[in-house]
Design a protein around this nucleic acid. Structure first.
Lengths: 115, 115
DNA sequence: ACAAGGCATCGATGCCTGTCAATATAGACA
DNA sequence: TGTCTATATTGACAGGCATCGATGCCTTGT
């Protein structure tokens, strides 16, 4: 297990509206939301998630944006460090796929908990 | 209806993982997430939502933080302009309450709809 | 009319971030 | 070994943001 991402510890609690978040909880969840709070990263994550097989490489993603390759690489790094996507290097290509647990825990926090 | 908040138009679409977000969708949703992506604002929203009656005034919120009153006021303004909370001035006090539609649409976007 | 208190706004400051060009790294293939 | 290609890293720059102190606005009560 290479690194402990924010998604590992965050958002494993009661929904936002049930009881006040503690300072610690808020400081764990905020980085997750911050990683998502960018139009490019939202599209990147959505693009990866909706892809056939649930994965995409940088070259695929690059083609969908009018941004330079380093910028896309930077955004994927942010998503990865937040624990929202996993990396898998196969040969020359690097494939990203969404980490479903992270998204689910975020959804539970925001309060769409169907009992 | 004083202003059209981001929450009015954003996040009324398929979950993030179903199909790629368009640029327009991403640019509508991102401000909502950005408004939430701050530890103080997360606690503020949670505090308001979990309050008896679902509302709180600035003076209540101020007491829960080690920040100045202008800073709290600024954060509540950000939440309000994103469409996440409503304002209601009653006498000297200003009461905030969460706008449930905004949170629900965000939750639907993130994808906590397990069929 | 005046004073007091709750809240918003303004201006300034220091830090964070999105973007790019240039460069580095690393795997595949001849 | 050397070249080509895919991805990451670095350094720099501009814009954004969280915070504060000072101040203004508005409502209530005297």
């Amino acid at each position: 297990m290479p690194l402990a991402s924010p998604a590992d510890t965050a958002a494993c609690c009661a929904p936002l509206t049930a009881e006040p978040l503690t300072t610690e909880q808020a400081e764990q969840v905020a980085p997750l939301l911050k990683a998502l709070a960018d139009p490019v990263r939202l599209r990147l994550l959505s693009l990866v998630a909706s892809r056939d097989g649930g994965e995409a490489c940088i070259c695929d993603l690059n083609a969908a944006f009018d941004l330079t390759q380093p910028t896309i690489s930077h955004h994927m790094r942010v998503l990865h460090e937040a624990g929202l996507v996993d990396r898998d290097k196969r040969g020359v290509w690097v494939y990203y796929r969404v980490c479903p647990r992270a998204l689910a825990s975020l959804g539970a926090l925001i309060g769409c908990s169907p009992p």
